[in-house]
Simulated assay, not measured.
Amino acid sequence: MRIRRTSATLAGASALALVLASCGTAEVGGGGGGDESGGADTITIGVKYDQPGLGLLEGGTPSGFDVDVATYIAGELGYSPEQIEWTEAASANRETFLQQGTVDMVVATYSITDERKNVVDFAGPYYVAQQDIIVAADNTDIQGPEDLSGKVLCSASGSRSANNIVDSEEDGGLGIDAELREAGNYSECMELLANGTVDAVTTDNTILAGFAAQNPDAYRMVNNPFGEEKYGVGLPKGSTEMCEKVNQAITKMWEEGKALEFLEKAFGETGFAYAEEQPALEGCA
């Protein structure tokens, strides 16, 4: 996998959630009674609102890498940017939103896992991140996950990142004895790090790079990545046909160079090294 240096431009947005109609194979089109080829008036997409470089709400519309990816996919499905209804999809409510029809799809640093595939479908991955750690700038003690033993570690509700460190090796973790502190989202984790309540925050390196770029004098990324986080497009269970269309859009996005364009726009000035080759698609069940 080739790697190159990267950047971040940030912005934000408002949102309305519409209801998704479903039958047999899930239909797309925020409550518009449309079909799977973009026949409805709108499409409702869940993204993050608090993650610089990925999904950030600052003003009228969200911006970031995930938002650009979602906009491209929607375009390939037949929806213009004006037909997209954005809604905030925090880590803790992504499955619920898809199950209840609040959104048509989720593009929100949504890692593909076997556990999640029991309740939702995934297209992709469209990007593979790695997990890392961020600490206060003057903290030189923590250089990797092994240094978190006895430390207070923050992760967002609904995320599995901290479990990857503290769970036993039998359960797929590193078995490190850190004290977990759960917050509502990663913005809250960063506030806890800033005031010294926690010693470190762990999640995907893409997410941490955005926060570090916002205040480089206050935070230090450990830059000792481990594991893989396969970012998928979350879809309601039973969306096999839609999944295949989204996978076609993802492949086209990489072949046209748009994915690298979106990555450079998001991370080019942060010093974060992003992967520049399309990850292998996992296929649609």
Rank of each mutant, 00 (worst) to 15 (best):
M1Y: 12
R2G: 14
R4M: 11
A11M: 15
G12T: 15
V19Q: 07
L20K: 13
G24P: 05
G30H: 02
G38F: 02
G39I: 02
D41E: 11
T42H: 08
I43H: 02
I43G: 02
K48R: 14
K48V: 07
K48F: 09
Q51P: 07
P52K: 15
P52M: 12
P62A: 07
P62G: 03
S63E: 04
V67S: 00
A74V: 00
G75F: 01
I84W: 00
L98M: 01
Q99C: 05
V107K: 03
Y110H: 13
I112F: 07
T113F: 12
F122L: 06
F122R: 01
P125K: 07
V135F: 01
Q143N: 04
G144Y: 05
E146F: 12
G150M: 03
N164H: 10
V166F: 02
D167C: 04
D171E: 11
G172Y: 04
N185K: 05
Y186K: 10
E191I: 12
T197S: 07
V198Q: 04
D199Q: 01
D199Y: 00
Y219E: 11
M221C: 10
N223R: 15
P225N: 12
E228I: 04
K230N: 15
G232R: 06
V233C: 05
V233L: 03
T240K: 06
E244A: 08
V246R: 00
N247C: 08
Q248T: 09
K252V: 09
W254A: 07
A259T: 13
F262A: 14
L263P: 08
L263K: 04
F267H: 05
A273F: 14
A275M: 12
Q278H: 15
Q278V: 15
